[in-house]
Design a protein around this nucleic acid. Structure first.
Lengths: 121, 121
DNA sequence: CTTCTATTTTGATAGGTGTCAAATTAGAAG
DNA sequence: CTTCTAATTTGACACCTATCAAAATAGAAG
């Protein structure tokens, strides 16, 4: 109920954009994710979460890196989550965010030069 | 004079976002490119140009794939060009667009899981 | 139950963005 | 020079978005 994009839909997986033209549907799904990355705050949030110990971080770990209000950070985290790029899980008082490495890898593959075929058969 | 982003600045090249947190400057440059990809029309335009014979295409080759006015296509192409993702060159009556494979590869590497080091020494 | 802390949601606002029609530039061809 | 085609630029408008302050929700602790 919380995610707009189905994380299980991977029919566009790994076919690079340089191969054959994207369909309108593929472009719609992919551009929604790139759009979420198209903000400096969100991109830094994603990298902070990804690089944080254990692969997850709570808002309290992230907010300190910006001169932005809490609600603004929360807004950007929601955008990333609704785009399917990160996950959130409540544990006690804190809410922990973690990246979806698979989705990031898929986006990387779409921009990649060729179907490398060096580890994902 | 036409590009806002210097195509020669590659100081953020290839360090994946999952490694260590991006600096504000890196995030600014990268997010500007992802932002340009964050529109379905632009993403399809990019893939159409990339997949076109010879690696380049004129607007007349692209406009037919959309139900959009010429000025709108031109607008999106300019956004892609100013983001440093594509190049444009006038030859006679037509203006040919081509992708910058290097920039796409860099973006792919940023989202990639790890410094693969399997073909770009 | 009350209070405290962590985070989100709501409401408001300034600024950005996609789109089109109309006008403009650039080159080719008479 | 005039005309024709290709593409861009300008101007306008509806919609979206990033941001904050204030209010609301969720759990922990007393």
């Amino acid at each position: 109920m919380s995610n707009h994009l189905d994380p299980g839909s991977e029919r566009w997986c790994c076919s690079p954009v340089t191969g054959e033209p994207l369909s309108a549907e593929q472009a719609g799904e992919l551009s929604a994710m790139f759009k979420a990355l198209g903000d400096p705050v969100r991109l830094r949030l994603l990298s902070l979460v990804a690089a944080h110990a254990g692969g997850e971080a709570c808002v309290c770990d992230l907010a300190g890196a910006f001169e932005l209000s809490g609600p603004t950070i929360s807004h950007h985290l929601r955008v990333l989550r609704q785009a399917g790029l990160i996950d959130s899980e409540r544990r006690g008082t804190w809410i922990f965010y973690s990246v979806r490495p698979q989705v990031l890898r898929q986006l990387s593959a779409v921009l990649g030069p060729a179907p490398a075929a060096h580890g994902t058969p």
